[in-house]
Design a protein around this nucleic acid. Sequence first.
DNA 1: TAGATTGTTAATCGATTAACAATC
DNA 2: TAGATTGTTAATCGATTAACAATC
Lengths: 217, 217
Amino acid sequence: MAPRPSYRLTRIPEMTIRRLSVYTRCLLQLEEDGVKTVSSQELADRFNLNSAQVRKDLAYFGEFGVRGIGYYVSGLKAELQKILGLDREWTVVLVGFGNLGSALSRYKGFARQGFRIVAVVDDDPAKVGREIDHMPVIASRDMAREIKARGAQIAIVAVPAESAQTVTDQLVAAGIKAILNFAPARLKVPRDVRLKNVDLSIELETLSFYLAKGSRS
Amino acid sequence: MAPRPSYRLTRIPEMTIRRLSVYTRCLLQLEEDGVKTVSSQELADRFNLNSAQVRKDLAYFGEFGVRGIGYYVSGLKAELQKILGLDREWTVVLVGFGNLGSALSRYKGFARQGFRIVAVVDDDPAKVGREIDHMPVIASRDMAREIKARGAQIAIVAVPAESAQTVTDQLVAAGIKAILNFAPARLKVPRDVRLKNVDLSIELETLSFYLAKGSRS
DNA sequence: TAGATTGTTAATCGATTAACAATC
DNA sequence: TAGATTGTTAATCGATTAACAATC
């Protein structure tokens, strides 16, 4: 009944984490719709997954369900938010305020899950000193100071490929522990820093593979 | 020696396609650097993959290597580009010219691989009729006509979640065969239309899981 | 209680990796 | 030829799914 100790050694599959994130959003919606309980089968149907998979994903972290009933929507939601670290605010710096950076800075989905961009970093003199939605734009030479002062844990990198590694080294030196990288560059980070690359082109390229295949075969 | 027939039934793993895309970019770089041949081991080392995996990925599509030598960089590059459909231009419409849409419209990585955005769709009267880097901004009521006139095959959806399904239905009706969706919505499309969802929040959420775990355990 | 649904074990499936004969 | 590296088979590993006793 009690969640398992979180120091358990079982390695949790990355795909499980991603699905947990999906379940959470679904539960948020269900709660809004006033639904009280949900079964693994109902959850699975929404994403065409297997109900055993849903139960297994959850079972990595504890026993959240009630046999014969299913899961209590708001209880499970709260548990998953805690597991994913969405029950608190994360302090984020956004590096790069070009096209993509400015789009990301305005992206509402981040704030909604508790990711607060507290500073935007860009060296363009035309941008430095401005303030966008309460986010100050600062120069990179002030970045480390700001990160430490604010206790920022996460950085979003949206600079050109050429400057990505330099910026990353500065972020790491300043104590950043997780980086979401949009620059088309393979970044080197120490083992204890979590790095996630988002590649916008690769998705289009896989689509074109299937289109090309379709017109071939 | 000759590539295998492309009508072969073997289902190709999605992860293989994604890696093919990664190999291609690496080969592009190697070619630029004047490197003539590369072994599966060298390729693998660059992405910490296994060399057998590289060979197997390639072997789905033919025998491109030379025993004792490795792969000829420009030859393999050309083969992979053909497989991925990157040896031609794809005609793309971008729907939604808000923050994200405008960032995507300027994103250089797409054009570099032959994805040409030929029209931007947005219903904001302040935007309709403008032209951005040779891309006309048109209203959604003219979308279908433009898609047919230009023979566009791919659409990028970057509208708010609320309008995503409506827009998608129109795209499908107009003959679009592949959709890259940035809207946080689960879209329904017919089986013959390829849909790829990009979720910007989910990446941050997996990062926060590891951060939260770190501070727990 | 009877019906429903969980948590978990065992079976299946698919992807990764090791190993090696083929061959440049 | 000797050395290197491929393409491919067999072994391994891990993730998904089926099945079911436990139990609300």
